[in-house]
Structure formats: structure tokens, C-alpha cells
Design a protein around this nucleic acid. Structure first.
Length: 608
RNA sequence: GCCCAGAUAGCUCAGUGGCAGAGCACUUCCUUGGUAAGGAAGGGGUCCCGGGUUCAAAUCCCGGUCUGGGCUCCA
């Protein structure tokens, strides 16, 4: 049960409620400087002013500055919905208003006065906001031309002082984020101090689009999804399966070297097991319905922990065999709501790189420290060294005693100190069964992604009555920690694809070197070179469609982001060499076959 | 789940009541070429699925599925 967050994309720390795409595509967590924030908030006002002019009677809700931009939520007359075509006229009206340079005029009102003003203009959301403010709070409003809004400020001097902005896209958003309340029309925009910065930001958005793992997944023939298959399910094609299996091979080897024992567990289990683990009680909405097996209900597994617990409990355990570390690449199924599915990043069937640590209380600090250090090593292999760390503490509703929580949180804090990791607090963000550490990687575009979580669990050892016999000969209850390093393989591969923009480092490339002949006569030689390289453990292919021109094959190799292309013509056959083209640097070099094999073999060893 | 948008050849997309299209890809033939697209011909369609309106539906209407942008949920 713990570890339910495994495999789910989460906002990066500090990215809460951020701009476009913040949920699945978290943006930079660093707060915008105040100047930009003011500018963006003023741009939101300007947009609201334009919307109110174009849609008389529009009600406006909230319009904050967010990372990289701003938004404003509206309820339009006649419950009008917005589509992308509505944006250009709104943006045009904004520019028109801005050209008149109306000032942002600050107005202070008494509470009753303000309530009266917004009641009169039919702004029920503003009335609700004011009613929720403390009675003694001074109410400030800003007037911009005809647009009057409740607002703390500050603002730029006038609406002409917003140098560069662009509306991006409309979206639906519930009032106060509550799905029982009205659905409002949100418009996202971005605003910057200079046109150059705006342009750079739009370039970044285009770059993120270019790196979209769904696009690259199709272009590089890595994986597919589809209507016939069903939402949230992934088919791994040979290229993607190769990358995944390389990641898995590394993962298994590292775990075996790191004192873990690998296990396997089935995809379904009797419903009664999920009752014991209390998943049926607390996680039922995410689980698929029962399957009848000889009159007994079974369920697809949403998590691996009950299985690992059964392995632990399969016989009497002595303190001498603790800590016990059981690890599995375990495929789980969760009934994610259709609207949240997203490529590889949010799916219904995924493989967690899961492990459960069972240990004595005395062993716990060292176990957690090892897990954190192990996570860092694992992520560094993929080039992720700059991590964001978050410590999630006791929520309001929590199982376990206050002492248990305090002790566990102290252990986590101590470990972060020992490891020299600066962290950010996520107060009340722990699961109800225990606190956790989350590690976020930052990808090539500096976007944070939650990968590793290390999470205490106070209740499963109770649910399953786990025991070990201590040195004193009496039974004790072990402590249990869930941990994952990559999150889920699906999501991690999605992150890797975007991080590398599809150009995998040599050790992960599905094809490491393609041998391209200038004419068909060189094919036999090319095949012997391929065999030599394969003998060195390299993944090599030789396209042999007769009559295909070298230029075309080079282009295809470039588009497929194959790291090395080896060109072979008469000269190379005569010299026993290969003309090597590095598709990343475009550098060309002529190498003897043995030198080529050695060079690629050495590079393919490199990680991180 | 909710709001909005979309679904037409393997891919990217045009077509908006009246003969189903383009580029790329694919097949065949010609071309044997030295570092990012040689030429020609050809094949390829349940216009997402189901229902309705109409003389006639890819096109209009209703329902569903999937996809995308958001929101929400996230033990």
C-alpha cells in the first residue's frame, strides 16, 4: 500500500499550481523574481479586462502569476466555453487596451463597501473571496480603465508597461479546484520583460514539444499505445524494449551487488489478501474489479508489497537474517481516471522498480541511509546528479503513534544530513502510514520529475502480524520501508527519452553502430566487420536493401539517432578500415576495424 | 470523472451534404552511388465505433471509444 505514489508523476517541489502543463510537465521550481511576478499578474488583469469587454457580464474568479506566466478563470455569460480560436481576438483586445495605457489605480475599500461593489456588479466569486477574508483585513482593489478587480497588488504602473506577452491555451478548471463547483474557463498566458525573453520561452516550449516522448516513441519506433489496446497500456516495440531491458539489466545487477534479493510475484491474488492489506478499504477506487476463479474473487495487483510480505512471512525469521531486502520489477495495474492518462508518464499498467526492506529498529537508520545513497548512485548512472529532495511529514489523518512518527521523521532528517542533501519540507505530505523522502531528478530542460521515494510503513507489519525472533528469543515486530528508485520503468523511460531527446548514450542505444556500404559490393566486408563488432558485445546492424543509396541510409541513421554510422566503400575494404561518422558531433574519422571495436567497446562501458 | 478540442492511407494532414485526396512511407522497375532525401510506375481506406436525420452523410444530430490540453483525485 505504501508506495502508492510510485510511478506517478507529481509536481516538482514548489511547482504547485503552476502554469501550462505543470502537472505532467512540471516547470522550473525556482520562483520568478518579484518584478516578473508583478508583470505577469498585471498581464492577467489586462487579459481579464479584455475578456470582460468582449464578453459583457463575464464573471472573473482568480488570476495569479504562475511559473513562466499567468492565468485567469472566468465564468462567461450563457455558460460560453472557450476554444483556441477565441484567443487571438482576446489577445488583440489586450493590445488595444494596452495602447491606451490605462493606469493600474489602487483603491482601498471597507469590507462592506467592497462586498457591496462586487454584489452590485454580479461578481459572486469575488464576493465569496471577500467573505472568506479575515474581518479586519484591509480590502484593496485595482482599477484598470473599466476593469475593477479585488487584488492585493502590486501592479505595474499602467497596462502599457507589459512589454511582451502571449496567450497560450484555454482550459477548463473548477472553481476552487472542487469538482462539485462550477467549471470555469481558464486562459493561460505568458509574459516577459523583453520580446527576446518571450521568444526564448516560446522556443523552450517548442523544444519541449520536439522532445515529447510520445512523438519520439513513434519516430524512433520505441513503443505504441492505442485504441484497440485500451487506454493507459503500452506496447514496447523492439527498440524500446531493448532500452528498457538494458535499464533493467543494470538495475538487477546493481541490486544483486547492493545486498538485495530479487523475487517474482504474480499479477493477481485472492481478494482476501487485499482485504488483509487494507487495500480494499483504502485503495479500492484504483483497483480493477474482481475476477472469478472457481467461485473465489481475485484482483489484479495495484502494488507489490503484500507479496513481498508473504515471502517474508513464509517462515519464521530470525534477527540474524535482517535486514531482509526483497526487490522486484513488479508490474501493477491501477484504474487511473481516463483524463489523467498521458503517454508513458501516466498509465494503467506499469512496472515498479520496487523493494521492501524489513529490519530491526536499530538497523533502520543505516538501512534508510543505504537506500538514499543507492538511489543517488542509480540515478547518477543516467546522468541525473542534480536532485531535488523533499521530506514529507505527518498528515492530519495518520496511523501510528506520535512517537513512531517523530522517530521516523528524525531518522529521515538525520539521513539527509548525513548524505549532505539539502531538502525541502512537505509538511503533512506523508502518506497516512508513514513519512517519506522523495528524490526528483532534473532533466535536460531543467524540469523536475519525481523518481525515488523511500517511505516508512507503520501499518503493514501490523496488518500481517509480521515477526522476527530477537536475540532475546522472543518475537518482535520488524520495521518496514518501501522504496523505489526509478519510480516506474514506463515513466522513467518516458523521462529518459525526453531527457536525451531520443539520442540515447551509447550504452542505452538500441542500435549502437550501423554499417553503411557505399555500393552493394562492400556488403560481405561490412558483414564481417559487423561480426567483429558484435563479438565485442556491440549492437550493430547492416542495412542491405540492394540499390539503396548511401546518402539515404545516412539520413535514415541520423533520423533514427543511431550514435555511430560506419561508412564502408572500396577504400575501406582495401584498407581494412571503416569511416566512422559520429552523429552527435558530426565528426568523421577513419579507423581500422580493431581500433573501432575497441573504441566503441570502451565508450559503451561508460555510464552517466 | 468533469470542461474544451480532435480522430480521414503506416505517418503528417487537406477535404465540411453529391466519384475519398496530397506529401512522406511501402511494393516493383531503372539507377551502383563517397557522408542528411536519385528517378519512374504501382498498391494501399469500415473517413474511430454504433444509432439517427436526409434522395444522398467522411461532412449534420445523439451516444460511445480513444487521443490531446487542462481541472480534479492520488494509500
Amino acid at each position: 500500500m505504501a508506495g502508492a505514489l510510485y510511478g506517478r508523476p507529481r509536481r516538482g517541489p514548489g511547482a504547485g499550481g503552476r502554469g501550462p502543463g505543470s502537472y505532467n510537465r512540471p516547470t522550473m521550481p525556482t520562483p520568478a523574481p518579484e518584478e516578473l511576478e508583478t508583470l505577469r499578474h498585471s498581464a492577467a488583469h489586462l487579459m481579464a479586462a479584455a475578456v470582460c469587454e468582449l464578453f459583457p457580464g463575464a464573471e472573473y474568479a482568480i488570476g495569479p502569476a504562475i511559473a513562466d506566466g499567468f492565468y485567469y478563470d472566468f465564468l462567461l455569460p450563457g455558460d460560453r466555453r472557450l476554444s483556441a480560436e477565441d484567443l487571438p481576438p482576446i489577445e488583440a483586445r489586450m493590445r488595444e487596451i494596452a495602447s491606451r495605457r490605462p493606469a493600474f489605480e489602487r483603491v482601498e475599500l471597507g469590507r462592506e463597501e467592497a462586498l457591496e461593489a462586487f454584489r452590485r456588479s454580479g461578481q459572486r466569486f469575488k464576493v465569496e473571496i471577500i467573505e472568506a477574508l479575515p474581518a479586519d483585513e484591509r480590502i484593496t482593489c485595482y482599477r484598470t480603465g473599466d476593469f475593477f478587480d479585488l487584488c492585493r497588488g502590486p501592479h505595474v504602473p499602467d497596462a502599457g508597461a507589459i512589454p511582451a506577452f502571449r496567450l497560450l491555451h484555454p482550459a477548463g478548471a473548477y472553481w476552487r479546484g472542487d469538482e462539485r463547483r462550477p467549471m470555469l474557463q481558464r486562459i493561460y498566458g505568458t509574459a516577459w520583460l523583453t520580446a527576446a525573453e518571450l521568444e526564448a520561452h516560446l522556443q523552450r516550449l517548442a523544444e519541449a514539444e520536439r522532445r515529447d516522448h510520445r512523438r519520439l516513441g513513434r519516430e524512433l519506433d520505441l513503443f505504441s499505445t492505442g485504441e484497440e489496446l485500451g487506454g493507459g497500456l503500452i506496447l514496447w516495440h523492439p527498440n524500446g524494449a531493448m532500452v528498457r531491458s538494458l535499464v533493467e539489466d543494470h538495475w538487477r545487477a546493481a541490486h544483486q551487488a547492493g545486498g538485495y534479493q530479487l523475487v517474482y510475484s504474480p499479477h493477481v491474488a485472492r481478494e482476501q489478501l487485499w482485504a488483509t492489506s487494507t487495500h480494499l478499504q483504502f485503495f479500492a477506487d484504483d483497483m480493477y474489479g474482481p475476477v472469478d476463479v472457481d467461485g473465489v474473487p481475485y484482483r489484479l495487483k495495484p502494488m507489490n508489497c503484500p507479496f513481498h510480505i508473504l515471502i517474508y512471512r513464509s517462515r519464521m525469521r530470525s534477527y540474524r537474517e535482517l535486514p531482509l531486502r526483497l526487490a522486484e520489477l513488479g508490474t501493477v495495474y491501477r484504474n487511473e481516471r481516463s483524463g489523467v492518462l498521458h503517454g508513458l508518464l501516466r498509465v494503467r499498467g506499469f512496472t515498479q522498480d520496487d523493494a521492501h526492506l524489513f529490519c530491526t529498529p536499530e538497523q533502520m537508520p543505516e538501512e534508510v541511509r543505504r537506500a538514499v545513497a543507492f538511489s543517488r548512485e542509480m540515478l547518477a548512472v543516467f546522468g541525473f546528479r542534480d536532485l531535488l529532495v523533499e521530506l514529507s511529514t505527518r498528515p492530519e489523518k495518520a496511523a501510528g503513534s506520535a512517537e513512531q512518527w517523530a522517530a521516523a521523521e528524525a531518522v529521515l532528517r538525520q539521513v539527509l544530513d548525513t548524505e549532505g542533501l539539502e531538502h525541502r519540507l512537505d509538511p503533512g505530505g506523508g502518506a497516512f502510514y508513514g513519512p517519506k523522502i522523495s528524490l526528483y531528478v532534473r532533466d535536460a530542460l531543467d524540469r523536475p520529475w519525481q523518481c525515488a521515494t523511500i517511505q516508512f510503513d507503520f501499518i503493514q507489519p501490523e496488518n500481517f502480524q509480521l515477526e522476527y525472533i530477537g536475540a532475546d528469543g522472543t518475537p518482535h515486530r520488524p520495521l518496514m520501508v518501501h522504496r523505489t528508485l526509478l519510480g516506474s520503468l514506463e515513466r522513467f523511460l518516458g523521462v529518459l527519452i525526453e531527457h536525451y531527446a531520443g539520442a540515447f548514450p551509447l550504452w542505452l542505444a538500441p542500435v549502437q553502430c550501423r554499417l553503411i556500404t557505399v555500393g552493394d559490393e562492400q556488403l560481405p566486408y561490412a558483414r564481417t566487420v559487423a561480426e567483429r563488432l558484435r563479438a565485442a558485445g556491440l549492437r550493430v546492424d547492416v542495412p542491405d536493401h540492394p540499390g539503396e543509396r548511401m546518402q539515404l541510409k545516412i539520413r535514415q541513421g541520423e533520423l533514427q539517432k543511431i550514435p555511430y554510422l560506419g561508412i564502408i566503400g572500396q577504400r575501406e575494404v582495401a584498407a581494412g578500415s571503416v569511416s566512422l561518422r559520429d552523429t552527435r558531433t558530426k565528426v568523421q574519422a577513419s579507423l581500422a576495424v580493431e581500433a573501432l571495436a575497441e573504441r566503441l567497446r570502451v565508450e559503451a562501458q561508460r555510464r552517466g
